[in-house]
C-alpha cells in the first residue's frame, strides 16, 4: 500500500505542484486550478496555462490528527482551503506557522516543501504548501 514505483504518476504534475501553474479559459477568461480540459465556467475546450502568483488568504482550516496511512509521521499538521488572489480556492497544507495563529483571512504565500516520503527505496514527494509571508 502506498509504495508506488511509478515516478511518472507524480512527475506528470510537476507544473502544478512545483510551480502553481493552472488554467485560463481563452473563451471566457475564467482562471482555475488545476488546469482542466474543459472550462468549468463556460464549457470551452480552449484552455491555456496560467501562472498563479502564489499569494492568497485562508478560507477555512483544520488540524489533521488522524491522518491517512503514509502521513502518520507528520501528524498533527494544518490543512487549509486557500483562496488565491486570482480567485480560485485550493486545498493545501500550511507550514511554518503556529496553529494558534491561523485565522480566517490570514494572508499566506506558496512555498515548495516535502509532502511525504515512502519507504527507504521509495520516492520523495514535493509540492506546494502555504505559509504566512516573510515580512
Amino acid at each position: 500500500m502506498g509504495r508506488p514505483m511509478q515516478v511518472a504518476r507524480y512527475w506528470r504534475h510537476f507544473k502544478e505542484k512545483y510551480r502553481l501553474i493552472g488554467g485560463k479559459c481563452k473563451s471566457c477568461g475564467h482562471v482555475h486550478f488545476p488546469k482542466r480540459p474543459v472550462c468549468p465556467e463556460c464549457g470551452s475546450q480552449e484552455v491555456e496555462e496560467f501562472q498563479f502568483s502564489g499569494k492568497g488568504k485562508v478560507v477555512s482550516w483544520t488540524i489533521v490528527r488522524n491522518p491517512p496511512s503514509g502521513y502518520e509521521y507528520y501528524k498533527p499538521y494544518p490543512i487549509a482551503l486557500i483562496q488565491l488572489e486570482e480567485g480560485p480556492v485550493i486545498l493545501a497544507q500550511l507550514t511554518d506557522v503556529d496553529p494558534e495563529e491561523i485565522d480566517f483571512g490570514m494572508e499566506v504565500e506558496m512555498v515548495t516543501r516535502k509532502v511525504r516520503e515512502f519507504e527507504e527505496d521509495g520516492i520523495i514527494l514535493y509540492g506546494y504548501k502555504f505559509r504566512p509571508p516573510i515580512k
Binding site: 488545476p34 477555512s60 482550516w61 488522524n66 502521513y71 490543512i79 487549509a80 509532502v115 514527494l125 509540492g127
Partner: peptide, 21 residues
Amino acid sequence: AEWELFHGVSFVALNALAMRL
C-alpha cells in the same frame, strides 16, 4: 486523489473545513 489526498487530507478533515465555516 491528486488534489486532495496527495496533501494528506482525511475525509474527517474535509468535513472539518466545512464545519468551521
